[in-house]
Amino acid sequence: MPDFVLFALIAGIGVATVMGATGVFVVWRRMAYFGDTLAHSALLGVAVGFIAGIDVNIGIVGVCLFIAVGMVYLRSQRHLAEDTLLGILAHSSLALGLVAVSFLSALRVDLMSYLFGDILAITPTDIGWVYGGGTVALGVLAWLWKDLVAITVHEDLARTEGVNIIRTQIAFMILFALVIAMAMKIVGILLVTALLIIPAAAARRFARTPEQMAIFAAVAGSIAVALGLQGSLLWDLPSGPAIVVAAALIFVVTLAVPIRARAG
């Protein structure tokens, strides 16, 4: 196996594991469109990173957090419906990102690789980022897990039982921004949400507990990465979309698997 394929596989599985475990909350809490919005704003983060001369990943995390906080603020104003607000933020931040990147053409920002991912260009440094960031993300997720599940079931009930809602939600936002920055390299901005929700959706029918669903989602995502990479090498497909197609196929296959009736 050539080195670049090995790097791609290692990084891809790392990212898919984190995304599967985070993605279950995106599904449970109906945050798919919110995830899309943060992903769209990531391109603006790339531009900010270049312009400010800082690491692109830090730019992405920063802009995602800014958008997330902006979203929470706008929602509290209650002027517009949530999906309208998300649409405005998603498209204007993507457009702003595209405009900003066009000014940077001298720096040769490879737009396609940001939009659709370029997993085959992964370097050992990127792997370091993925596993460093991934370990932090999984650690934060494990720390938040019980409280997040409690809030997902019923926010007021969780609060009367002593869960700190604000702290938990802010921590989850930061986690989300971190995961999107990691995932961009693999599947690209336009397909990030797919790797968050498709493996989680595929895991649903087989899981009996929230934890099982997260683990199954991580496994499904990792298999999708392996299959997508394989397809990408065999048939010269674009790698990011190939991974998402593989995830979608896994989801379709899970629909066909019969499951024993859940008696008491």
């Binding site: 449970w28 997902t152 079931v153 019923h154 649903r204 929230p210 099982q212």
Partner: peptide, 13 residues
Amino acid sequence: PQSLTVDRTLPLD
């Protein structure tokens, strides 16, 4: 609480 709806995507017994 008055009502509690668990999303159908959340496996919880």
